[in-house]
Every structure is written in structure tokens, then in C-alpha cells.
């Protein structure tokens, strides 16, 4: 039945010295779904993500893409197969123009990326497609801007446009709305919804509101293993999930309060 799944992991395990970060995870991502990977801090979401994108090597287990074993492939190689990731910190090329950012992605299939003796004017014929992609994420007016000058939300949008340029079959998004203001969250969520047509998306996401709006299926991780799976209503009704989440949500708040108190002490000492 694996044909229905774009991505599958079998008994995936990742051990760091004396500590199992990912413990026997069997994940199945169905074709056409937006699949969310959630869980409290330290649950192993990012580790799973890095295993899937080959930035980490699993201790044991298998990763299948369209039924092919990609466990041993290199990160750049799976990108060429159609699995493209995003990063937690927005991954753009800051000192290239917005247009150039997208062109870097478009350029790969042109086959002249090693041609150091040719003028970069050959890249101009990619402009039309690049403009289309920028327009699709609402950045057409910023094409000539230096990327470093864009707002955070726009950088994220640019990153998505760049990823789309590769026409990936599977997009892996690492906390796409992290660190964003309210408006940007809505913007990016809409964008993800829009680009999900005709492709599969697996995302790690903290913002449960975004997850509830977007995800067709949710996998909850806790301490490196799958706690439960299902759609939002199933998962959110599960008392274990509530416990896992509320537990840390409360402790996070506690952390923040502690931090605040510490800062105040420092301020006082300075004053």
C-alpha cells in the first residue's frame, strides 16, 4: 500500500550519545496532504525533520520517498529528486536581489551552472518565470530589492517562491510561522494553503491555530516517539496530547516569567 504515501519512515531511530532523540518512528505522509508534525519542546520534531532532509544520518531505520529507499542519499541529491526543505530561520540569500534568489533555484535545471566562461546574461531568460513565481507569493513589486531589506514575513514568502521554483513533489517546512507577527502568520498560512495544491507538504509547526487551519493529518511526537495521529479534532480531543502540550505550555510560561524576573534583577543592579 506504500504507493499511496509520498513519504514513509520505517522504524526510524536516531541516537545521540546515550540519548535516543527519535525512537522507532513510523511516519506515513499521504499524497496531496498537508501533514503536520507537532509536539512539545524536545519531542524530537526537528531531529525527525533533519533526518528526513538528510541533514542528519539515522542510526537505524529506513526513509522511503515514493517507495524508493532514500536513507543513504545526500541532501542535495534528494532535493533533485523533488524533496525540498525550508529552514527555521528564513533561508534566503540576503545580498542577492529578490529576483536573483528565485533565479538561483530556477537555474539548476538549465544545466549551465558550472559554465564559468559564460555571461550571466543567459540567466535573463529565466526572469519571466521568476516574476510569475514572485507574483504568486505577492512579491512582484519587490523583485529588484535587496533581499536583506525585506520584512521577515516577505522573506518567508520569498523562500516559498524559491522552493516552488524547483516544482517539488514534497515540501518540508520547518516551523514556517515561527517568530512572526500576527499578520504575517495569516499571510504565510494562506500561502501554504495556496501552494499545497497538487503537492504534498510536511510541516513542523508550533502554532496550533495554523495547524488546525491547514493540516489534513497531524502526528504528535513526544519524547521521540509518536504519541498519536489523526485529524485535528481527533488529536485535540486526546487527553494525552492535552497533557503533553499543556504541561509544557505552562512550563514555558514559567520559563519566560523567570527570565523576566532575572532581567529585572539585572536592570536593578545596573541602575
Amino acid at each position: 500500500m506504500s504507493a499511496d504515501y509520498v513519504l514513509e519512515t520505517r522504524n526510524l531511530i536516531k541516537e545521540f550519545k546515550g540519548f535516543t532523540a527519535v525512537d522507532d518512528v513510523n511516519l506515513q505522509v499521504a499524497r496531496g496532504h498537508i501533514h503536520a508534525l507537532i509536539g512539545p519542546n524536545g519531542a524530537g520534531k526537528t531531529t525527525v525533520f533533519n533526518l528526513l532532509t538528510k541533514f542528519l544520518i539515522p542510526t537505524s531505520g529506513q526513509i522511503l520517498f515514493n517507495g524508493d529507499d532514500i536513507t543513504a542519499m545526500k541532501p542535495a541529491a534528494i532535493a533533485r529528486k523533488g524533496v525540498v526543505r525550508s529552514f527555521q530561520i528564513s533561508a534566503v540569500f540576503p545580498h542577492l536581489s529578490v529576483l536573483e534568489n528565485v533565479r538561483v533555484a530556477l537555474q539548476r535545471k538549465e544545466g549551465h551552472s558550472f559554465h564559468f566562461w559564460r555571461s550571466q546574461k543567459v540567466l535573463d531568460r529565466l526572469n519571466e518565470r521568476a516574476y510569475e513565481l514572485l507574483a504568486s507569493v505577492g512579491l512582484a513589486d519587490f523583485a529588484e530589492a535587496q533581499t536583506v531589506d525585506l520584512s521577515y514575513g516577505r522573506k518567508r514568502a520569498l523562500e516559498i517562491a524559491t522552493t516552488l521554483a524547483l516544482e517539488p513533489e514534497l515540501m518540508l517546512l520547518d516551523e514556517p510561522t515561527q517568530g512572526m507577527g500576527h499578520e504575517d502568520v495569516g499571510l504565510v498560512a494562506d500561502l501554504i494553503k495556496k501552494v499545497s495544491k497538487g503537492r504534498t507538504i510536511l510541516m513542523v509547526e508550533h502554532n496550533l491555530h495554523v495547524v488546525s487551519k491547514l493540516a489534513d493529518r497531524i502526528t504528535v511526537l513526544q519524547r521521540g516517539s509518536i504519541l498519536t495521529e489523526g485529524d485535528y479534532s481527533t488529536v485535540s480531543a486526546d487527553p494525552r496530547v492535552r497533557e503533553a502540550y499543556m504541561g509544557t505550555a505552562a512550563s514555558e510560561e514559567q520559563d519566560r516569567a523567570d527570565e523576566q524576573a532575572a532581567m529585572e534583577v539585572v536592570e536593578e543592579a545596573r541602575g
Binding site: 545526500k74 541529491a77 533533485r80 529552514f87 540569500f93 540576503p94
Partner: peptide, 12 residues
């Protein structure tokens, strides 16, 4: 500018 990103776009 951003090596991991270049990798994730499929460049060796």
C-alpha cells in the same frame, strides 16, 4: 550567502 539553502536547492 547561505550554504545549507544552496544544498537544499539541490546544489552539490
Amino acid at each position: 550567502e547561505n550554504e545549507p539553502r544552496a544544498v537544499s536547492l539541490g546544489y552539490e
